[in-house]
Design a protein around this nucleic acid. Structure first.
Length: 418
RNA sequence: GCCGCCGUAGUAUAGCCCGGUUUAGUAUGCGGGCCUGUCGAGCCCGUGACCCGGGUUCAAAUCCCGGCGGCGGCGCCA
């Protein structure tokens, strides 16, 4: 077996040389042990190898596994591919601390460390699990445009781009497009970037983030959509727990086993609950971050780590959510994970006239949405869907303190490089 | 948009409040030496830093102003 990777640590004790190599085949380090009498052929070469060297080796696991840091190999063949020109700017052996800022600058290099590598691999696992779930459940993967015309959704502010002679924007959500496709597909999903031009600087916001979006038609109620979302999230989390044990262990995370259904809370119940705890909540607005976190604490005490909040007031939602008969509440829901909103969705308004009315009610001009509205003229079934934030989900699964840790190359208020 | 805190070697930090006692300390890295497999190895020697500009002062890493950069809180947002 041939393994390739980078030397993250080199130790010499007496005449024994030890190289710890980070390979992409595992988050566990490979420990290469060289003794002068046994490894005459490579000994001189290895003595010359610096931390950071890219190499491949062939060998077999040693009988005596003395190392506590990885799997020991007896090397039979060694190929050196590249040596570092300078000492590495950050410690890939995990001994010297590194600040988040520096960590983000050198993420591509630090990913040689087991912990950083583990985060990247688990993120990859989330995507893999999501695809598996959707493909097994009759969803078709779609791709909608990321360069869009104005007025996609209201809400978050958009990044402007010059599109030849027209102004255009980076898509903040595939919302309108995935809905339009319910005119021809029963179930669709998309794994996509979201671009949001909000000037936030918080541990839970990014200006470029990724989402898992789904939309399904022919539903009988918003429950159908919530069921898809909870099954998806449970599938992802359980998949990661099962298939990424080493990675989770490396990060010191206890694998989580989720069962469905998740707890459902009505928005009005949440308001009452929080008020009884002395939290100031407005009944016609979305919950504040503080209120969300507080609710997370209350729910965690009852062992409900994931829970839905259903029935947000119309005054706090986007125009496309279906309103209840009372006109006050909607079929919009959020899915929170330990006090953080990781997904939101709901049943949409599929009736053309009602949708036009809703746009007007929100002070939007239906003419600007004619491309979207037209999709509701020719047999649009009742439908709903959701958007699930990948970084937020990853953050919560891994107990990351800052959402920036969940992305390799961060785009936030001030970071455009690397 | 409003507000707060921070900015010292490659990395991470002490010193800053109370200016001079600092050739700016420590750890780690890096270079060299020692050590019969270390595992945050150890021991010895060496290396290297006060974000930028202006001001106050006999004297500024330390105080003041501005800029740039980082982190966070509120708002907004997923």
């Amino acid at each position: 077996m041939r393994y390739c990777g980078w030397v993250v640590r080199k130790v010499q004790v007496g005449r024994v040389l030890i190289l710890e190599v980070s390979t992409s085949s595992s988050v566990r380090l490979s420990v290469l042990v060289f003794k002068p009498e046994r490894d005459r052929d490579f000994y001189a070469t290895v003595r010359d190898v610096d931390v950071g060297t890219a190499l491949c080796f062939e060998g077999f696991p040693a009988e005596e596994q003395k190392s506590k840091r990885g799997i020991e190999y007896v090397v039979e063949k060694l190929e050196i591919y590249a040596k570092p020109l300078e000492p590495l700017p950050v410690d890939t052996a995990g001994k010297t601390p590194v600040l988040l800022d520096t960590r983000l600058k050198y993420r591509w290099l630090l990913a040689r460390k087991p912990e950083e590598r583990a985060i990247v691999r688990i993120r990859s696992g989330i995507i893999k699990a999501a695809r598996e779930y959707f493909e097994a459940n009759g969803f078709t993967e779609i791709h909608t445009p990321k360069i869009v015309a104005a007025g996609a959704e209201g809400g978050a502010t958009l990044f402007k781009v010059q599109y030849f002679e027209n102004d255009a924007y980076l898509s903040q959500s595939p919302q309108l497009y995935k809905q339009m496709l319910i005119a021809s597909f029963e179930k669709v999903y998309e794994i996509t970037p979201y671009f949001r031009a909000e000037k936030f600087n918080t541990p839970r916001h990014l200006n470029e983030s990724w989402g898992i979006d789904a939309e399904q038609g022919f539903i009988s109620s918003v429950e159908d959509v919530m069921k898809t979302l909870e099954e998806l999230v449970a599938y992802i989390v359980n998949y990661v727990s099962k298939n990424y044990r080493e990675e989770l262990e490396e990060l010191g995370i206890q694998p989580l086993q989720l069962t469905t259904p998740f707890k459902r809370l009505k928005f009005t119940e949440v308001v009452d609950l929080l008020r009884s705890e002395g939290v100031d909540v407005r009944e016609n607005e979305d919950l504040s971050d503080y209120a969300e976190r507080k609710l997370g604490e209350i729910m965690s005490e009852k062992k409900h780590y994931l829970y839905f909040i259903v029935g947000f007031p119309w005054s706090s939602t986007a125009f496309y959510y279906m309103r209840e008969e009372d006109g006050i509440y909607t079929r919009k829901f959020d899915l929170d994970f330990k006090g953080l909103e990781i997904a939101s969705g709901g049943q949409r308004e599929h009736r053309y006239e009602k949708l036009v009315e809703a746009l007007k009610d929100k002070g939007l001009n239906p003419e600007n949405y004619s491309f979207y509205l037209e999709a509701f003229k020719y047999g649009m079934p009742p439908h709903g869907g959701f958007g699930l934030g990948i970084e937020r989900l990853l953050m919560k699964i891994l107990n990351l303190e800052n959402i920036r840790e969940a992305v390799l190359f961060v785009r936030d208020r001030t970071r455009l490089i690397p």
